[in-house]
């Protein structure tokens, strides 16, 4: 898809939300184009399921539309608020899923060589999702927000309602575990040395 240009690129999320609440259609479009990819990527990595992630993205955005008229300016960043909503929605989904065995989670293997070289993108994303799914939920959330969404630690702390040091610890442990898990994927995906 060719993404239309965001003509209100210089306007802050909050200003767009106020414009939207006042009936501005272009603001709705700008916010949709700006925020949907972020919240979708977050949900996709948290859930490892594209269709479910789309549901979450739509629901989170719907809640944003609904709160627009009552938005309290200056209290929270729109993106932080939206991630928190998405995080709660993902947690609900994951809780509902619990009980379903996560047997397809990868087992870390040590000593594998550069593992992902040569895999096609779809396989690599599957590998990432599987490795993420093996992480404890809070670690996964912190890693996705930090390394995929590119958020700052203070913002992540606000979204997860924990301290900045706890965020640093979660991302560090999560990234280490992810690297270990992915080091075993090469063989699992059939990329043995040829």
């Amino acid at each position: 898809m060719t993404m239309p240009l965001d003509t209100l690129a210089d306007v802050t999320d909050e200003a767009l939300l106020i414009l939207y609440a006042n009936g501005d259609g272009a603001a709705a479009r700008s916010l949709t184009l700006r925020l949907t990819p972020r919240v979708l990527a977050y949900a996709a990595r948290m859930l490892g399921d594209r269709a479910e992630a789309e549901d979450i993205a739509q629901e989170a955005m719907l809640r944003l539309w609904r709160i627009a008229a009552d938005w309290r300016q200056g209290e929270a960043k729109v993106s932080t608020w939206l991630y928190r909503v998405a995080a709660n929605l993902c947690t609900d989904r994951l809780r509902r899923r619990r009980g379903v065995a996560l047997d397809d989670a990868p087992e870390p293997e040590d000593g594998a060589p550069s593992v992902l070289h040569g895999m096609v993108d779809a396989d690599r994303m599957r590998a990432l999702d599987a490795a993420l799914a093996a992480l404890p939920e809070r670690q996964r959330q912190a890693v996705v927000l930090r390394h995929i969404e590119g958020m700052t630690n203070p913002d992540i702390a606000e979204i997860m309602e924990i301290g900045v040091e706890a965020v640093e610890s979660l991302t560090a442990r999560g990234k280490r575990a992810l690297a270990a898990a992915l080091s075993g994927k090469r063989a699992a995906l059939g990329y043995e040395d040829v």
Partner: peptide, 9 residues
């Protein structure tokens, strides 16, 4: 590898 994957995501 991991950073590449993050970029892809």
């Amino acid at each position: 590898d991991l950073d590449d994957l993050f970029a892809l995501a």
